[in-house]
Amino acid sequence: MSKKEEIVRVDHITKRYEENAILEDFSLSVYEGEVVVIVGPSGCGKSTILRIMNGLEPVQKGEVTYRGEKVDGKLGSITRIREKVGMVFQSYELFPHKTILQNVMLAPVLVQKRDKKEVKEEALQLLSRVGLSEKKDNYPRQLSGGQKQRVAIVRALCMHPEVLLFDEVTAALDPEMVREVLEVILSLAKEGKTMVIVTHEMAFAEAIADRVIFLDAGHIEEEGTAEEFFRHPKSERAKQFLNSFTYDKVVHE
């Protein structure tokens, strides 16, 4: 891979909840156009890393830089960065009091002060791309989980973020709705969008990742291409972890 520009870096971060250190001296860089997938056992700190990248979580030590620029605690700087870093949550978090179209248009109009008409056009275009244009005047409560999650992705996209963060966006969905959401994310990857994805869908992870980070107890246990990690895991922990997704064939005694 040629040297791409670094977009986000978390740099020697220490994160504690009370006395519990979740991340200790943790660093991770995300480069333009790459898809980084973070996997690891429950509670190992995956969500925390995404939240730190988006400035939702204060840290005790270290810093987050965005295209080389330090994100400090000052509000102005942090909201400016958040415009550039889109986040999609497991529980969708659409705004229940706004229609689908209003959900998508709110931030571009309010935060970026873009022209309403132009934003509306783009919003409708994005919604039709995920097959939801006829839902534009519905409220979130009238949509299925998979539809809500596609709207949440569109809402993030409409801000023209330079990097998108996905935190287990299919974990709350019924199995038959998982694919419709993952297809959208796959199509974004094909376009070359920069993304950091936390997921428990290993087949999806293998298909989409340029780089896989295997996190265990707050540190990077193993890191490599999708092929390397899923086909030839090196560490014992990684092998164990991957095994936990397969089942042995039952042998009748």
Partner: peptide, 28 residues
């Protein structure tokens, strides 16, 4: 609380979040 986070992750500042996201939902 995560509604607030959702709004902030879209770049809304504190007062925009309160005005456009929290108050209307609280009122209803």
């Amino acid at each position: 609380k995560i509604q607030t986070e959702s709004a902030m992750s879209l770049g809304l500042n504190k007062s925009q979040t309160v005005l456009h996201i929290i108050f209307p939902q609280a009122f209803s």
